[in-house]
Simulated assay, not measured.
Amino acid sequence: MAITTDHTLVEKRRSFWDAGPLIFSIFYFFPLAFSWTQEGSVNLVAQLLIYLGFVWLYWQSIAKTGIALITLLSLMTLLCIVGSLATTGTSSLFGFVAFFCGFSLQGKYKVYGFFGLLISILFTSHFIIPAHTIYFLMPAICVSLGLFIFGWVTHRERVHRQLQRQSEQEIKRLGAVAERERIARDLHDLLGHSLSSIALKAELASKFAAAQAYEQAQSEALQVAELAREALSEVRQAVTGYHQLALDAQLHIMASRLKDKGIAVSLNLNAVEIDKEKEASLCFFAKEVCTNIIRHSDADKVSVQLQQTQQGISVEIKDNGSVKSIKEGNGLMGIRARLKECGGQLVYHTEQGGYFKAVIEVDL
């Protein structure tokens, strides 16, 4: 029989408050209130023992599932049937079994369990206490039906809440995975080119030293140190709180780096509205292009323009270098892929110097 294992009345362990519903078992003593003087001491003790036994079975059933739960529910039903010989108050106790059927059983077994309980009630009313059928049957059926439906609804609500929590946790997990992938990609974009250049320069320095060309070896070693410092600076910028600089701030930083290399920079930056992911893509585009200009171009003038139009937000970087052609390496390919993921594109040519443009569509 398929029975839930994750949605019992309590999720981990029983507590005092799990016994709260037993407050309604007070109806068990209603018949006794009207026949107190007519009851013998043996019958009174029997009623008390029946009630205490039922409470114990209820308490054991709270945190049980599977065959253990079925066994306890069967014992509770049997106790109600036998207890009807001592008092008709057991009509209220059948409802607790009905609640467990609606709450703890799965699918069609809920209905099977409830119908089994109804048969037990009918059997009790007709064969155990036929003289009190009217006073026993209707209350037992009405209470059991109401608590069965209540248990079923409670079960569905709890399953819904758990699925919602799982969905939220899955969203957080996927977000964390995406964030790790983004960080890995950012570090690759930041360090991939720099580390490749450092490795190449170090190999050249080693070869020059082996050939006793010490001046060339020293020059290459100095370039290695410069590349390492630049890479360290970029990593520090990225790691500081790992909050991406605003696009205009990033463009000002790159302009400052160009000026430090003796390149005149013209900035035309307009205010734009863009989300963080797209802004990060444009920031890395600007870093890659400006770094390539510093390392590979003989340009002495660069213009940078940031604007927002109906086509989207664009960053244009032009230089007056004498570049014949551009070979798209890992850096530009990475930027192109990043822009494509954000619904953008990369355009460049060398007709009148270097020209690079990144455009990302945004909702106006």
Rank of each mutant, 00 (worst) to 15 (best):
A238W: 10
L190I: 15
Q166D: 04
I26M: 06
G20P: 02
V347K: 14
S92C: 10
L117W: 03
V239Q: 07
E39V: 05
S219K: 04
V239F: 10
W17R: 08
G175V: 12
E288H: 14
S297I: 05
K301N: 05
C80W: 12
Q352K: 09
R229Y: 09
L32N: 00
R180D: 05
G66D: 05
I198V: 15
S297V: 01
Q310N: 08
G113A: 02
H188R: 12
Q250H: 06
A140T: 09
F94I: 01
G175F: 06
A98I: 13
F16Y: 00
T5Y: 04
A249Y: 02
R336F: 11
N43V: 15
Q216T: 01
A2Q: 06
L245T: 07
M333R: 12
A337Q: 13
F16D: 05
Q162F: 03
G89N: 03
K301D: 01
Q237C: 09
S196M: 13
Q47F: 03
N292T: 04
A264V: 06
G151D: 03
Q352W: 04
K276Q: 13
I317S: 02
V10E: 15
G66H: 01
A358P: 01
G321V: 01
E234S: 07
K12F: 10
S297C: 10
L122P: 11
E226K: 15
H132M: 07
A221Y: 14
F96Q: 03
A68Y: 02
K110A: 10
S125M: 08
A63V: 05
F96T: 02
L267R: 01
V97F: 00
R156Q: 13
G83E: 00
A2R: 13
L32F: 13
Q162A: 08
S219Q: 06
S325H: 13
L118M: 12
Y348M: 11
V272N: 05
Y109R: 15
Q60W: 13
Q311Y: 01
K324F: 00
A68V: 03
F24C: 04
T309W: 14
I134V: 06
A209N: 04
D319T: 10
N270P: 14
Y51L: 15
V45L: 12
L79W: 00
H296Y: 14
V97P: 04
E351T: 11
D260Y: 15
L306E: 07
S144M: 07
E361C: 06
I23Q: 07
E279M: 12
P21C: 00
E288W: 01
C142P: 00
L332G: 10
A337I: 03
S104D: 00
L44H: 06
Q60P: 13
A231I: 14
T154L: 02
R13Q: 11
M333Y: 09
K172R: 05
T90M: 11
H132K: 00
E273G: 07
L232N: 13
T5G: 00
I62A: 01
L174V: 15
L69I: 04
L48I: 07
F54D: 07
H243T: 07
I119E: 09
